[in-house]
Structure formats: C-alpha cells, structure tokens
Design a protein around this nucleic acid. Structure first.
Lengths: 244, 244
DNA sequence: TCAATGCAAGTGTGATCACAAATCAAATAA
DNA sequence: TTATTTGATTTGTGATCACACTTGCATTGA
C-alpha cells in the first residue's frame, strides 16, 4: 500500500488528512498578498526581486514568479524599465476601483444574503462582538487587527455567495485597493473615528432576514466610506499644494 | 545624446514611437491567451511546460512563468498533482461565468454607451459590414475569423468604457469562457445558424443613440445565446448518457 | 489471469549562472 | 558651477542543472 489516495477500506488512512505540499512560490505569493492587502507597502514603492528574496530568505526564482502573478492581477505594476512597483493612488483610479467593488461585491452579498445558513450567520454575528471588544480597550491603534478582522468578516460573507468566478475577482479588487484602504484607516484612526462597525451590524441584520437589497445598500455604504474620506483628503491636499 | 528618453527639443525623436522591448515571456503569454480565447485547447486538456516550450521553440523558463500567470487568472487550473490543465466545462461553472459576464460586461457597455464618440461608433458600425460579407460568402465555416471579429467588436466597445479596472476583468472572463464559446460556435455553425450579428446591430444602434439600457439588454441577449445553446446541448447529452 | 512490486522515463520546482539593460556616482570638460 | 560622460554596481531575463515527485510500463509473484 503505497498509493497516495486515501481508501475507505483503510481505517487508518481514513483519519489522515492530506498533507498538502505547499511550494515556496505559494508561500511567497501569499506573503506578498497579505502585505499588499494590509497596506504594508506604500503606493509607488518599487519592489526588487533580489530585495524581496533576501527579505523572505529564499532565492529569486519563487519571488519573480510570484511578482509576475501579482502583476497580472493588477496588484502590482510593471514599469517600462522592467522594474515593478505598487501602483500609485490617483483620484480616477480610486473612483474606478470603488465603482467596480460596489458592482461586484454588491452582487456577491446579494447572492449570499439568500444562501447563508444559520451557522454561517452566527459566525459573522460573533465577529461583531470582536469590534465591541476592540472599541472597549482602545488604548492603542490596533490597525493591523482592524484590517484583518474587516477582511475576515467580508470574505466570510462573499464565500457564501457560491460563485467561484466572483470571489477571485473580489480578491483581486481588495489587492488593488489595499494600499488606499490602509491610508484611509490610518486617517480614520487619527480623526478619532469611533463606530467602524456600524454598517457591519446593519449587514448582519439584513442577511439574517434575507433582505438582499438592504444588505447590498449597507455594504455599499461600508466600502464607500473610506474611499470618500480619502478622496476628500486628497482633494484638500491637492488644493493646498496648488495654492502653495 | 545617448539618453533613451525622448526629448521635446529633439525634432527627430519626437516623431519616433517607443520601440517597446517585448520579452519572450510576454510573447508566450500572449500566444497562450490567444489560443485559450480562441478555444484552441480542449477543456480538461493537460498542458506540460516542456511540451509547450518545444511547441513555442523556447526554453521552459518563459513558459512556466506564463502558465503561472494564467493560473492566477483562472484561465488554467493547477491540479494537486502539480500538473496544469484547461478547466473542464460544467453546467454550474457555465452559469457562474455567464452571470459574471452579464454583470460586468453589462456595466461596461452601459458606461461606454454614454462615452463613445462618433469616430468610435463609426468603427464598430463598419464591423457590421464584415459580418454581412462573411454571411455572403459562406462557403466554408470560417470559425476563426468569426471568433476574432466578435472579440474585436466587443473589446472596441469595452475599451471605451474608460475603466482600467473593469477591462482586465472582462479579459479574464473571456479567457475563462473561451473554451466553452468555441464549442458553442462550432455547434451553431453545424446547426446552420444564420444571423450571428443580429444583436450586434441592435447594440450599435443603441450606442449611437446613447441608450445605455437597450445596449445592455442587447449585450445580455448576445452573450447569453451561446451559453444557453451549449447548456441545452450538454443537458441533452447528460440525459442521453443517463438513459444509456 | 490478475494484482502488486520495482524500475525507468517524464515533469515541476528551485538554485545558479551568464548576459544585457538600467541606474547611480564619480570624474571630466565647458 | 553646471552639464556631460564614463565606469561600476544593480537589476531583470533567460538558460541550464539538480532534485523530488509522479506516471507508466514491464516484471514478478500468487
């Protein structure tokens, strides 16, 4: 018995989970994704293959392939010089991203609202408590946890929409808007924003009652907020720079 | 003067277009894309790096990176065995793809309908003539030209929507539905379908009058047709296979 | 005859090297 | 001092190699 496929007749193999051989390239890719969505890289920052390979303690090979993948999903940008950077923020691009996210994530949540079972609803309902918890002990700006929790919440919903086509597109959109969002969340945090979870509560309520329209509306409000906030901030800076 | 950047002061350089150094990887990627959208690969077909490298007369390096990129945009599929294949067709996946295409391409054409100038409209209007031409001399099934013309027509419109976010997503969707479409077009051709350009005329008319809603409706009808056709065909086969 | 074993060919992954292009800095000339 | 040039370093790209895993086929055993 050296076959890799688990057979029902084998009582031992039945309890063993497949080990799943993750390649180095996959780890590099995941790591860069995480950094991008979390906004750890600044817009317009240039990334080099050898630099990342050193930082990730691997050779250049897995890095260059991971970069290539991120470039095709527009999470990174290939300059004509053949160097790669994280795309800069422009107002047009922000509007473009927001419109696409409203369109696609709105559709996904509308689908999910009619398909989530009580167990899944309980999961996202439980997450609301974590926001309360974070707000209670707001001694330090825990931006990282905020970002992660927000991501988990949204994708728990999107995953329930049951579309293997829409979900990767949403991931791509988050990858592209990650650097912007981070800036916005920092700005929120400085501006003393308090109730970041308000729309999330509305979303949970709407999904619990299978109200697709209200879920979509609340989602649109939720994802629009950081964009409009950042937009007004950028416009103010542009005006100031113009007058100076 | 050995600087590569064109300077305004140089009257010769001003007339020269940048030559654009395309890498081997880019050519491989484009070639595989073309093959995929055109449906040259069959669903479930397994692709090997060395096999493609031989066929494209290059080393394995550019091929493996191109394959990696195509896998991330779901144009190809990575099996747990680490071999890669073109994704098989299932009814669920077809419905999923069609819904996403209606959502996103519908939005793109609605945007384009309000933004295309008379020059762009004249371009797509001119393409209608090519369909008439093809229908006139229908001595052989020129599926390749049909596919190419259809693609050019649609993307001429999508390009005018002005969204740098939506267009790559539409390209990804075409990449994913390419293998299905080819099968459907062959089936159309066998079934003696005549007026493949009917909805295209409606689309041009709607755009010329800036009627976004009618343009969207006609587009939905246009892209739904091959899917519903293929769906009924697959269902018939499934039923036949079941009774046999 | 059929299933299990063992060997050989094929395949993906990662590392390393060679080369060309780009970038940066110091040196030189106006 | 400023602009240009020259040279050294850095960087991306492609080729090749080594290794591990998978697959397929022939051999061996019952």
């Amino acid at each position: 018995m050296q076959k890799a496929t688990a057979e029902k007749s084998d009582p031992i193999a039945a309890q063993l989970a497949p080990v799943g051989r993750e390649t180095v390239q996959d780890r590099v890719y995941s790591e860069l994704r995480r950094a991008l969505i979390g906004g750890l890289f600044e817009p317009s920052q240039i990334l080099t293959i050898r630099g990342l390979a050193d930082a990730l303690m691997t050779s250049t090979m897995p890095v260059r392939e991971a970069l290539g993948r991120l470039i095709t999903e527009k999470a990174l940008e290939a300059l004509p010089n053949r160097s790669v950077r994280v795309p800069p923020i422009t107002l047009d691009r922000m509007d473009d991203l927001l419109r696409a996210r409203i369109l696609i994530e709105g559709e996904a949540i509308a689908l999910a609202a009619t398909r989530m079972n009580s167990r899944q609803i309980a999961t996202i309902e439980g997450m609301l408590g974590e926001w309360d918890e974070m707000r209670a002990l707001k001694h330090k700006k825990d931006v990282d946890r905020e970002v992660t929790l927000n991501q988990t919440f949204h994708f728990e919903i999107y995953r329930a929409c049951g579309s293997a086509v829409l979900i990767p597109m949403i991931e791509s959109l988050w990858l592209q808007s990650g650097p912007c969002i981070r800036v916005a969340i920092y700005a929120f945090s400085e501006a003393g924003e308090v109730d970041t979870a308000h729309y999330h509560r509305t979303i949970v309520k709407a999904i619990a009652t299978q109200d697709a329209k209200e879920a979509r509306d609340a989602l649109v409000a939720d994802i629009s907020r950081p964009f409009t906030f950042l937009r007004s901030k950028l416009e103010a800076e542009a005006k100031k720079g113009l007058s100076a």
